[in-house]
Write a protein that binds this DNA or RNA. Structure first.
Lengths: 216, 216, 216, 216
DNA sequence: TATGAATGAGAATTCATTCAT
DNA sequence: TATGAATGAATTCTCATTCAT
C-alpha cells in the first residue's frame, strides 16, 4: 500500500532490534547477565517492556542474539585485518589483533558515555558453560578460528619455516593463551599489556626460551 | 558440663561449616552460583536453613569461604607436588599438575555419587569479575603463583639455562595458557588432553617452533 | 463516487464483522474465552489488529456479538424444524433437535478444517454466570423457549392429552435435562448418545417408570 | 525434639492448607477462577504470597485441591443423608438433597460475611472442560454417583417396583437434570425452587405426564 | 478504512533472609 | 544451637488496547 513498505518495515525492525541489542550490550557490560534485569534494558533502550518482548521472546534470546552479533563483529574485524597480510606472523597477529580490538572496544550508553564491553566475553563464556545452545555457537566459532590458525601453521610447516609439530595441540595452547589473557585482563586490566604480551607470545613461540638452542 | 569445652565447640563448629561447604561445593559444581538455591544447599547438607545462616551470614559468604577453601586445597596440592622437585621443569610441572589435579578432582555428594567440580573454577572466576571481594582474593592467589613461577624462571636465567627474557610477561602468558585451557576444558572436555597439552606447552616454551634455530 | 453507496458500505461492514465473528467462533471453540487472545483472532481472521477494534470495541464485545449470533442461529434452526410439525411430541422433538444440531455443529477454520463448536455453549454459559450483560441475553433466550414449551404443554393439558401438572416447573426440569446433557457431552462425549437420550427422556416423561401405572 | 512434634506439624500444615483453601473458596465463589488473582487469595487468607506457594505450587494446584475438597464434602454429605434411608425414593432424594445442600451452602469470608459458594460448581465444571486433570477427577466422581444411582434403579426393577428400562440412559438423563438445574440456578436463582423441582422430577419420573396411563 | 508497532499495567512465581519456638 | 515456617520485594513475561501513519 505504501511505497517500499516491505523494505521500510524490515529496516525499521532491524533498527529496533539493534536498539535493544545496543542497550543490552551496555547493561551486560556493566552488570553481567544475571544482574541485568529486563527493566535495565528497558530503561537503557528507551523502549517499553512490551516492545522488548515483541522483538525477543525472552531475556535469554536477547543474550543469544547478542552473542551472535559479537561473533559477527569479531569475524568481520579479523577478516578486515587479514586483508593484504601474507606472512604467517602477520596473519596470526592480524587474528590476535582482531580479537583484542573486538574484546576491548567500547559501546556508547544512553547518556553518551563510553562503556567498556570487555566483560561481555566473560558473560558469553560463562553462559556457554551453562547453556547448551550458547555452548554450541561458541564451539562453532572456535572450530572456525582453529581451522584458520591450523591452516596457517600447516603452511609454515610445509614451507619449511616451522619444524614438525603437533598442530592441533599447538593451536589449542595458543588459543588458550589468548583466552586466558582475556580473562586475566578482566580481572587485572592494568597487568595485561596486550601488544607486549602478544609480541612475547609469538617470539617465544618461534624461538623458545632456552639459552643454548637445541643445535648441539 | 565439661564436655562443652571450647575445643569441642570449635571442632563442632568447624565440622558444621565443612558440612555446609561440602554441600555447597556439590551444588555449585552441578548448577553454578546463580542456579544454586539456598534450599539446594540445605537439602544437600542435611542441615536446616536456619543453621546455614547460623554459620554463614549470606549465600555470598558461603561462596567466598568456598573460594578460600579451594585456594587452600590448591596450595596444599602444589606444595605436596613440589616436595623433592629440584629442576626448573620438574618444578613447573609440579605446579601445573597441582592446578590440573585440583581443578579436575571430584567431590562426593550426599548420595555417595562423585561430582566433577571443574565448574567451580569457572564460577569463582566469573564472580571474581563481578565481585570486588572475590576479585581481591583471586588476585592475591595469582600474585602468589606468579611470584613462585617468576622465581623459578629468574633462577633459570641466572644459572644460564634460560636466555634473558621479560619474565613477568612470560609468566603472564604461561599462566594465561593454563587458565585458557581450563576454560576450554569446561566447554569441550574431549578436546583438551591436559598432559599432552602441558608437554607441548613446555616443549615449545623451551625450544620454539622455528625450523632453523636462531644459531646462524 | 457512486460505488460508495450506503448499502455497499453496510454490506462491507457486515462482511468484516462476520469475518471477525467466524474467526472468533473457531478460536473460542478451540481454546475458550480466556485462552483466546486477540492475536489468535487476528491470525484466524486474516485481518489486522486495528481492524478488529474498528468493528468491535473490545474482546468482550466480540464475545457478546457471538452469543447473539449463536442464539439467532439456534432460533432459526428451531423455527425451521417446527415447520409443519403439529403434534406435541413432534414439536418438542423439533425444539430438542434444533438445540442439539446447533450445539453440535462445526465451523470451518482458515485452513479449511472443520472445528467442533460445542464448547461455545459452555463458554457462553460460563460468561453468563460472570457477566450481567451476557446473563441478561441468556435469560431472555431462556424465557423465549420456556414460553414456547409451556404453550405446547398447556395445549396438551387443555386437550386432555396431559394430566394437570405444574407446567413451569415441568418445563424447567425438561430444559435442565437438555442443558445438563450438553455439559455432560462436553465432558464425556462418548457417553452421551443424544437421540437415544432424547427418546428416553420423552418416553419416561410421558409414561413414567413405575411398573404398575397408577390406574388401580 | 519436642513432644508430639510430628503430629503438631502435620496439624499446623493441615490448618494452613485449609486457611488457604477457605480463602480460595471465597475468592472463587466471588469472582471465578480467571478473575481471582493470587493477591486476592493472599488478602483473603491473611497470609503472605510466599506462604501460599509454600503450600501449593501454583494457582492451578489450589484449584485442584479445592475441587477435591468439594467432592469430599459432597460425598460426606450424601453418605450422611443416606444413613437409615431404605426405599428407592428416599435414597434418591437423599442423594439429590446432599447435592443441593453442598452446592448451595455458604462460606464465611475474612470479614465474617457469608458467601454463597454455588458458583464453585460452575468453575469446576468449566475447568473440567478445559483441563484434563480436573476432567479426570470429575469423571471419576460422576462414575461413582452413576453407579450408586444405577444400583438403586436396578434394585427397583428387580423388586418389580420399576418396569424394564434402559438404566444407564435413565441415570444419565436424571443426573443431567440435576446438573442443568444447578446451572440454571446459577443464572436465575429466583426461578429454581429446588425442593419443588425435585419433587416434580421424581413424581414425573415415576408416573409420567400422560393423562390416561398406558393401561388400555 | 486499514494497519501493526508500541504500550504498560498487571499477572504468576521465586527465593534469600528472618525469627519465633 | 537448631529449626523450618513465614515473608515480600523483586523478577520475568503477557496481552488488551491505542494510535500514528
Amino acid at each position: 500500500m505504501h511505497p517500499d513498505s516491505k523494505d521500510e518495515r524490515n529496516s525499521k525492525t532491524e533498527e529496533r532490534r539493534n536498539q535493544i541489542l545496543d542497550a543490552a550490550t551496555v547493561c551486560l557490560a556493566r552488570k553481567g547477565y544475571y544482574e541485568t534485569k529486563m527493566d535495565d534494558i528497558v530503561a537503557e533502550s528507551g523502549l517499553s517492556k512490551g516492545t522488548l518482548y515483541l522483538y525477543f521472546k525472552s531475556k535469554k534470546e536477547i543474550f543469544v542474539a547478542l552473542s551472535e552479533c559479537f561473533t559477527e563483529t569479531l569475524n568481520a574485524r579479523i577478516e578486515a585485518n587479514l586483508e593484504g597480510k601474507t606472512t604467517l606472523i602477520e596473519r596470526m597477529r592480524a587474528m590476535a589483533d582482531g580479537y583484542v580490538q573486538t574484546t576491548s572496544s567500547t559501546a556508547t550508553d544512553a547518556s553518551g558515555n563510553a562503556v567498556n564491553i570487555s566483560r561481555l566475553t566473560a558473560e558469553f563464556w560463562q553462559q556457554a558453560v551453562v547453556d547448551p545452545e550458547i555452548r554450541a555457537r561458541f564451539i562453532e566459532a572456535y572450530r572456525f578460528y582453529t581451522k584458520m590458525g591450523e591452516d596457517l601453521i600447516k603452511a609454515a610447516v610445509a614451507s619449511g619455516e616451522f619444524r614438525e609439530v603437533d598442530i592441533p595441540t599447538l593451536m589449542l595452547v595458543v588459543m588458550a593463551a589468548f583466552d586466558g589473557l582475556t580473562w586475566r585482563w578482566l580481572l587485572t586490566p592494568e597487568e595485561v599489556d596486550w601488544p607486549h604480551a602478544i609480541d612475547l607470545l609469538f617470539e617465544v613461540l618461534l624461538n623458545g626460551v632456552r639459552a643454548i638452542p637445541n643445535s648441539g
